[in-house]
Amino acid sequence: MVEFGFPAFLVLSAFLFACGLTCLATKRNAIGILMGVELILNAANLNFVAAARFVPTFRLEGQVFAVLVIVLAAAEAAVALAIFLNFYNNHATVNVENATDLKG
């Protein structure tokens, strides 16, 4: 089995973060944007867990933080879907480009 070091995880998380940002910038579908946000949150989680795993002097805080973020992401997704469903009921779409009532 190949053992990867800490830097490999840092590169992976940076890549995930970039993917998430790209997703946010290009997607027009609200659910797609939510997915991009989840990518960013999980990139941060990966950093926390990898740091806690690879640096021996570190304590458990990283893993605790990651668990907390997973719970928070679930809470946020629940609220998000409620908001999007509401939006869908009025606009019959979840395309955020249709959200153009407010201007000035």
Partner: peptide, 29 residues
């Protein structure tokens, strides 16, 4: 109007939470 405000605020606020968390993860690392 309310729905549009909620969707806009939500998407940008959660993005800021994500970026903040990523910064925090570097600080912890």
């Amino acid at each position: 109007g309310e729905q549009e405000a909620a969707v806009k605020y939500f998407l940008l606020s959660i993005l800021s939470s994500g970026v903040l968390l990523f910064g925090f993860s570097y600080l912890y690392g």
